[in-house]
Computed example of a mutant assay.
Amino acid sequence: MSHEAGYVGAETLAAVNPRNNGKLAADLSKLAGRMERHRYVFFMSPLFPGNERWPQFERHGIEVWSVDF
C-alpha cells in the first residue's frame, strides 16, 4: 500500500457504475479490514465526472473519490 507502513491504503476501480457487481462495496470491505491511517477508494465512471469526494458512498472511515481526466 504505502511506502511508509500503516500510513496510506487505497483501492481503485473503473466501471460504468461503481455500484455494479458490488465493486465499490468489495473495495470498501477490503480496506475496512486494513489498519492504514488514511484509506481511500478512487473510481472512474462516466456517471460521476470530475474529481470529487462522494461521502454518501463512504463506510468505515474510508474516503471515496471519483477521478477524471
Results as ranks from 00 to 15, higher is better:
His3Asn: 12
His3Val: 10
Glu4Pro: 05
Ala5Trp: 03
Gly6Tyr: 04
Gly6Cys: 01
Gly6Ile: 00
Tyr7Gln: 06
Val8Leu: 13
Val8Asp: 07
Gly9Leu: 09
Gly9Met: 08
Gly9Gln: 10
Glu11Arg: 11
Glu11Ser: 14
Glu11Asn: 11
Thr12Pro: 12
Leu13Tyr: 11
Leu13Gln: 09
Ala14Ile: 12
Ala14Ser: 10
Ala14Lys: 09
Ala14Asp: 07
Ala15Lys: 13
Ala15Val: 07
Ala15Arg: 14
Val16Gln: 11
Val16Cys: 06
Val16Lys: 11
Val16Tyr: 12
Val16Ile: 09
Val16Gly: 11
Asn17Val: 02
Asn17Thr: 00
Asn17Gln: 08
Pro18Glu: 03
Pro18Asn: 05
Pro18Gln: 03
Arg19Tyr: 07
Arg19Ala: 15
Arg19Phe: 08
Asn20His: 14
Asn20Val: 00
Asn20Gly: 02
Asn21His: 12
Gly22Asp: 01
Lys23Cys: 02
Lys23Gly: 00
Lys23Leu: 12
Leu24Ile: 04
Ala25Gln: 15
Ala25Leu: 13
Ala25Cys: 13
Ala26Asp: 14
Ala26Asn: 13
Ala26Ser: 14
Ala26Met: 11
Asp27Arg: 06
Asp27Cys: 14
Leu28Asn: 08
Leu28Ala: 09
Ser29Tyr: 04
Ser29Asp: 15
Ser29Lys: 15
Lys30Leu: 14
Lys30Thr: 12
Lys30Arg: 15
Lys30Phe: 14
Lys30Tyr: 14
Ala32His: 12
Ala32Glu: 15
Gly33Gln: 02
Arg34His: 06
Arg34Pro: 01
Arg34Ile: 04
Glu36Pro: 00
Arg37Asp: 13
His38Val: 02
His38Cys: 06
Arg39Gly: 07
Arg39Cys: 06
Tyr40Asn: 07
Tyr40Cys: 08
Tyr40Arg: 10
Val41Tyr: 10
Val41Asn: 04
Val41Gln: 04
Val41Phe: 12
Phe42Gly: 01
Phe42Ala: 05
Phe42Arg: 02
Phe43Gln: 01
Met44His: 01
Met44Leu: 01
Ser45Ile: 03
Pro46His: 00
Pro46Ile: 00
Pro46Tyr: 00
Pro46Lys: 01
Pro46Gln: 01
Pro46Thr: 00
Leu47Thr: 07
Leu47Lys: 11
Phe48Met: 06
Phe48Ala: 09
Phe48Gly: 05
Pro49Asn: 00
Pro49Leu: 02
Gly50Trp: 02
Gly50His: 05
Gly50Met: 04
Gly50Thr: 07
Asn51Thr: 12
Asn51Phe: 02
Asn51Val: 13
Glu52Lys: 12
Glu52Thr: 11
Arg53Lys: 08
Trp54Phe: 15
Trp54Ile: 15
Trp54Asp: 08
Trp54Glu: 08
Trp54Lys: 10
Trp54Leu: 14
Pro55His: 05
Pro55Met: 01
Gln56Phe: 10
Gln56Pro: 05
Gln56Glu: 14
Gln56Cys: 09
Glu58Cys: 04
Glu58Arg: 04
Arg59Ala: 14
Arg59Lys: 15
Arg59Pro: 10
Arg59Phe: 13
Arg59Asp: 08
Arg59Cys: 09
His60Gly: 11
Gly61Asn: 03
Gly61Ser: 02
Gly61Met: 02
Gly61Phe: 06
Ile62Met: 07
Ile62Arg: 02
Ile62Gly: 08
Glu63Met: 07
Val64Asp: 01
Trp65Asn: 09
Trp65Arg: 10
Ser66Ala: 13
Val67Gln: 08
Asp68Met: 08
Asp68Val: 08
